[in-house]
Amino acid sequence: MRLNCPICGERDRREFYYKGDAVELDRPDPNAGSEAWDDYLHNRDNPAGETRDLWHHESGCGAWLVVTRNTLTHEVLRCELAGANTQ
């Protein structure tokens, strides 16, 4: 598996660390209520198909990436910076 890091270019999977569902980027409001926070903290989908995950390019540029891939075909559809490139 290879991921196309927007900073470094296409790299081998072993340079990356897998974090989990990219839902972590959508942090609810502190007052959103226990149901929203329960969802955010504990409940994850296990989709057969497109999934958005957070990956860390730990051996490369150190950027956090949102990788969209298909769990059925193993196709990597998109690979984007999770944060803004501040320069």
């Binding site: 470094c8 790299r11 072993r14 340079e15 730990e58 051996s59 490369g60 540029c61 150190g62």
Partner: peptide
């Protein structure tokens, strides 16, 4: 230049 793996190291 590239940040990458050198053996098992960053």
């Amino acid at each position: 230049t590239a940040r990458t793996l050198v053996g098992h190291m960053h």
